[in-house]
Design a protein around this nucleic acid. Structure first.
Lengths: 354, 354
DNA sequence: ACGAGCTCCTAAAGCGCTTCAGCAAACGGT
DNA sequence: ACCGTTTGCTGAAGCGCTTTAGGAGCTCGT
């Protein structure tokens, strides 16, 4: 399966030029080169131009390691994901968030150290943070999917590095956080269902310990009550989404808002297995508006949130924090409810069946 | 949206202990400490134990930057993804592959520098590789989704860093590659359809330029011919999967193998729009066996490939390459066809309709 | 015409580690 | 009792950069 290495590649890799090489060739001291490339004063304009020119000729780029050593900063931030891969792969949040982070980091010439840890045993996760922090490999951490009693918080506090949490964490967060407006999409979702005539609206969420799930649950309850109805059944999927979907259906709602598209699909599959038609017997709304929302049958009504923007804002906040500055203000754009075919007026009410 | 920084955090961050601190406290020279922590000879057993003990007491960890500087290696590898985020988010390959890489890297105390570049304009991608390579931030690159005429290849050759390609690249690959057994799953898929009685079997693939799509296409053709039939319609989705799905249906196959689950869903949606029932009028097989395969309706028959294993093998090969060793042998496990509800015997043949 | 105050640059120290040469003490063989 | 060898350690150089202190050569005001 593995191609043998061609002999030509085995040859000597040419030594990378150093700042001294550039200095010599440009007829200046290494210090001058440093000033020139870093845009600092201390070198005349013509010399600066000449130095930059020689650097380009030599193909010289400052060594990140050497810089990291002298500046005591790695220009790298860490993102540790502690979630099951099955959970991540169906999650459009992850990739979009990542893309947003990247956009910001690239602009600041920072890099992203990504660490995926299997959730098997918290102690492994701890090791992950420590290894990155202790070695000075990263200048700060971004924390996503904060949980209510998150063990990572204490761990990161001990590490003493700047941390920004992506997600509201109150009231006692040891770290600054950035939050996007994901949950108000819930209001729109509920209002949509109410306007269709639904009265018994359920909530199917992911793991109860997730902060964002709790927020959505809370918003859902508020919105349902604001419409003058009592909240319908609630179920949480921690791992087995089928079981949660079944539990939800046992509650006989006419409509359900799910905290992710994946859960919505699981619910629809389960409903079908019970002979319920979507949306005739059951309306379903997903969250994230992932690619599969448009492709599933029926096409899923879903709340789209701009997670990339969120990622960029979180990254920006962390970079500011690393520089000891105030994080820039972030005004998240409003989530949008994408209405498709999985929602409709309540037909034969579920509660009258059986 | 951003919580103000608590005053307590503003305080002085304590200086991290250095090797000299440990040496002083243990009553030895810094060199001895270095020997001790790196398991090198040159220090007695009892002294070694004492040094390690003091290091632990002080909470000292060697600085990654300093190490990188002296050893001229960053203990980091780069993975640059140049794909649309919409494409990535529905792709279970990505996350599973990543998880496999991580597993290998963590064991070797390497880190992963992830870079997501928007596909808008190749010149940006180039910059991405160069910035990482030139600064010495990474010791090598992993290349995924190789395309047939991949501009990244020349670029990476110029960078002079070790590179391992994940995916077969013949005949003229400048780099060693590692390949998993994704395509023989195709044979099983086709045989499954043939055994159900299908004779007109189509292939719906992703972008034509992808090497893995080409391989699957090739395997599909072989398998169909081996069964004694002529290959059915072929369509490729480059961006707009709906259009490709429509084109495929115009070819009037009774069964279609798709190169991803997302495409399979797109095809099913399109078929439904035309009033075709799955699997009665059309059997559909996906690839990847992603989470949504089991959740979609009908549940998707899909080929499961162990991408995590693949990622680990690719990472292992790259690490070996960085150390100048021969990459370990990799015997990929066979893909498995997960038969679900989207395939069945051909009913009213599509070709007799209309 | 002379020192103050520039501008433009250099020398050298230092970041935290690894490594190489070298040295003292202990050891073993004859 | 002597010499070669091994063992256990140290001193110092060096990785490639940044930064601080300071020096040389100007201009300029008086």
């Amino acid at each position: 399966m593995n191609r043998p290495v061609p002999a030509s590649e085995e040859g000597h890799r040419r030594r990378r030029p150093t700042i001294a090489d550039v200095a010599r060739r440009a007829g200046v001291s290494p210090a001058a080169v440093s000033f020139a490339v870093n845009g600092r004063p201390g070198v005349g304009e013509v010399t600066r131009a000449r130095i930059l020119q020689t650097a380009k000729e030599l193909g010289w780029h400052p060594s990140a390691s050497a810089r990291a050593l002298t500046e005591a900063r790695a220009r790298t931030i860490g993102l540790v994901l502690a979630r099951q891969t099955e959970e991540l792969e169906a999650d459009s949040f992850f990739v979009r968030f990542l893309a947003g982070i990247e956009r910001k980091l690239a602009a600041a010439d920072y890099a992203l150290l990504l660490h995926l840890v299997p959730v098997a045993g918290a102690e492994k996760t701890l090791g992950a943070y420590e290894r990155l922090a202790a070695g000075g490999r990263v200048d700060g951490f971004l924390l996503t999917d904060p949980e209510l009693e998150d063990p990572r918080l204490h761990l990161l506090e001990a590490a003493g590095l700047p941390v920004v949490v992506a997600g509201r964490l109150e009231p006692s967060s040891p770290f600054p956080w950035v939050e996007t407006d994901h949950d108000t999409g819930m209001v729109e979702a509920v209002e949509h269902l109410v306007s269709l005539g639904h009265q018994r609206i359920g909530f199917l969420g992911g793991g109860e310990s997730y902060e964002h799930v709790q927020r959505r649950l809370w918003r859902w309850r508020e919105a349902v009550q604001a419409a003058g109805f009592t909240p319908g059944p609630v179920a949480h999927a921690s791992g087995d989404s089928t079981a949660a979907a079944a539990a939800m259906l046992d509650g006989e709602p006419t409509a359900v808002v799910c905290s992710s598209d994946t859960l919505a699909l699981a619910l629809i599959a389960q409903a079908r297995a019970r002979g319920l038609a979507v949306p005739d017997d059951l309306s379903v709304i997903g969250f994230d508006d992932s690619v599969m929302a448009a492709l599933s049958s029926p096409a899923l009504t879903s709340v789209r949130v701009d997670y990339a923007e969120f990622g960029a804002a979180a990254a920006a906040a962390l970079l500011a924090r690393i520089d000891g500055e105030e994080p820039p203000a972030y005004e998240p754009s409003r989530p949008v409810l994408e209405v498709r075919a999985s929602t409709g007026a309540p037909g034969r009410a579920v509660s009258t069946r059986r």
